[in-house]
Amino acid sequence: MPTRPRLPRTPLRGGAALLATALLVSACSPEDTDSPTETDGGTEEAAALQGATASPSTPPEDTEPFTIAFGGDVMFEGLLESRLTDPSTAMGPIADQLSAADLAMVNLETAVTEGGTPAPNKQYVFRAPSTALEALDAAGVDVASMANNHGMDYGEDGLADTLAAGDASPVALVGAGNDADEAYTPHIAEAGGQTVALFGATDVLDDHLMEAWTAGEGKPGLASVKGEARERMLTAVTEAAAEVDNVVVFLHWGLEGSHCPIGHAPTLADDLIAAGATAVVGGHAHVLSPGGFVGDSYVHYGLGNFVFYNFDGPTAESGVLTLTFDDGRVTESDWAPARIEGGVPVPYEGAAADQARTTWEEMRGTCALPLTGSPA
């Protein structure tokens, strides 16, 4: 399968106050070991920092648009467990579409552990060995959100294993941490000479697990937008938007089995965009939901299953959303529909692809959402 050069990664641990420092590091290429030289504005480091903290409305002239490919829910239970015997092919043919973008992001709906204790009073608990991250990496995935209703299926011990596996992997994990600062800190990447912050957060948690699973001061857990946590997420997005060129929020949201978003979702999306998000995407419903432009930002209410053991009828409909970013705007979108076969998405082709895309686009009207097919 085709591969692309891996982009510089700057995981931020410790809060948005570290953004400027992280951006300075990511702005320097791995080969750049020369000593700083003087410029009209001071050292090269100072110039880089000034560029990193400048308003997104005044990007450097040498930037260019870049793409991010998004997939939905990924896990490796059931028939998918055996695919991890060879992580290099575990994701199947969809890897070509993920690898074609500058960056790729999915929702990893499983604890990455072989230990821990199953969460109490929970019907479905998912876990996978660290080879799951090898599979994501081999398929071209750069970032995975752990902020979902399965991220802590094996408790704090399972979360600790997950975070350790993430630290050892090229795939950056977001939306979870050893405390709230870590959980609400985005991963920062650079592409096309621009910076992008990628967050993960969940709007779905079992009531009896919400307090235990939500990250707090000195308390491991997940980033959430439920209750008081919503304001923390909005603040984190605002702070990131002041430091980087583009902001993505990957949300676990929606109602299982429903194509249309849950009632408060459009307001939540609007609030995140107002806070500075360039794109808000996500899933949870296990079926596809509408997506489209809100001004020059983009919202997708449900990417559906992606690599999943449960696929039949609507739950087998999947796809890859590829967005083109440029200076805090989404300028283009592409929905490449796929159908899950044997647990992995296989792209539609020809007339079947056209029909699947049309069916998905018609969901905007069905759900009566103010989304458009092109930016304002």
Rank of each mutant, 00 (worst) to 15 (best):
N246V: 07
T33S: 13
D206T: 12
T214H: 01
V330Y: 01
D206Y: 15
V247K: 00
D203K: 07
M233A: 09
T331F: 01
L323T: 01
T372F: 04
G177P: 00
A316F: 05
E228A: 15
D32H: 15
A69P: 06
G328V: 06
W360G: 05
K226A: 11
R6D: 09
V125N: 14
A277C: 07
W335L: 05
V171R: 00
S130E: 14
P220N: 02
P120M: 09
G365I: 10
L288W: 05
L173M: 07
L234Q: 10
V196F: 06
A269M: 04
P314N: 07
L133V: 07
G116D: 07
V141P: 00
G276N: 06
M152W: 02
C260H: 01
E114A: 13
S29C: 11
D327E: 15
L323C: 04
G175Y: 04
N310K: 14
H208I: 10
S224D: 01
T214L: 02
A22T: 14
V294N: 06
L205W: 08
D157G: 13
R4W: 12
A135G: 09
V25P: 13
P337Y: 03
A46F: 10
T89E: 11
E349I: 09
P370K: 07
G313F: 07
T235K: 12
E45S: 14
T185N: 06
A201Y: 02
Y301P: 02
S57I: 15
H286Y: 13
A191V: 07
G227D: 03
R329T: 10
L371D: 03
P266V: 00
T67R: 07
N305S: 09
M91A: 13
A215G: 03
P266I: 01
L222P: 00
S289A: 15
E231I: 11
G254Y: 05
S29M: 12
G304R: 02
E231R: 08
H150P: 06
Q194H: 10
P170E: 00
L79I: 13
G158P: 03
A183M: 05
I68C: 07
H300R: 02
G373I: 04
A223F: 01
